[in-house]
């Protein structure tokens, strides 16, 4: 078992690096190097040490390794008292003991909140959401919407829509009338279809084998299971 790295979707949030139990692991630096080799990430990092017994030199070596990678160690969660003392002497923020910590579910990525925008987005307006985005209105040609999760347009989509802005290739774009200039899902880009779709046909775009496909929308609401609390209703987009 190797160290598990979970990359934060929000650039302001720290990434999480969880070390395996010490008896199953080789050395600290090797574990960390291995975990970081999976993807180039930058920003701040929280380290969850569990039962590891790390002394001041260990932590200093770890810090210099992370700095080389462009990461800053900001918080440490450790159960071993020696590790906690060493971390405190380095000025690191100490999180609660792992025992008290609720592990973030590893399989299900953190469920993003839903942003609801009411009103038509006009040419030149650009709306970005950190979670999924629901527009109650039209997206006119020249307007742009993007979301980390799904993009849903309860109206006509005639501008540019980007779902899965940070690389979520399961994100979908749903619109009551799909006439976009351009669609983007994760890293894929597609021009909108040339023919005008039949009125009243709700369509859905998704990524399949690296290509964006438009099909009649599935009756399954893509936001199923999403918590409704934290619903955040905005009425004026950040016009740029």
């Amino acid at each position: 078992m190797a160290a598990a790295l979970s990359i934060a979707s929000d650039p302001h949030q720290p990434h999480l690096l969880t070390l395996p139990p010490p008896q199953e692991a080789s050395s600290l630096l090797q574990e960390v190097r291995q975990a970081l080799s999976l993807g180039a990430i930058q920003g701040s990092l929280n380290l969850i040490c569990g039962d590891w017994r790390l002394r001041l030199p260990d932590l200093e070596a770890l810090q210099s390794l992370l700095t080389q990678q462009g990461l800053t160690l900001v918080q440490l969660q450790a159960d071993h008292p020696e590790t906690r003392v060493a971390a405190a002497s380095l000025g690191l923020h100490l999180g609660p003991n792992t025992g008290e910590l609720q592990h973030p579910p590893k399989a299900a990525p953190t469920i993003p909140a839903l942003t609801v925008h009411q009103g038509t987005l006009r040419s030149g307006e650009h709306l970005q959401a950190d979670g999924s985005l629901l527009v109650l209105g039209d997206v006119n040609p020249g307007a742009q919407i993007s979301a980390v999760g799904h993009v849903l347009v309860w109206g006509r989509l005639r501008g540019v829509a980007h779902a899965g802005r940070l690389g979520d290739d399961q994100a979908t774009i749903v619109a009551l009338q799909m006439r976009p200039l351009q669609l983007r899902i994760a890293g894929a880009v597609a021009r909108g279809p040339d023919e005008v779709p039949a009125a009243g046909l709700c369509e859905e775009a998704r990524l399949e084998n690296g290509e964006i496909r438009i099909d009649p929308a599935s009756p399954r609401w893509p936001l199923q299971g999403m918590p409704t609390q934290g619903l955040n209703v905005g009425s004026s987009p950040s016009a740029q």
Binding site: S123, G124, N140, G142
Partner: peptide, 13 residues
């Protein structure tokens, strides 16, 4: 039409 749309958005705000 595109420019008019932009202006309408600004007028609304």
């Amino acid at each position: 039409v595109r420019d008019a749309d932009r202006v309408i958005g600004l007028l609304n705000t």
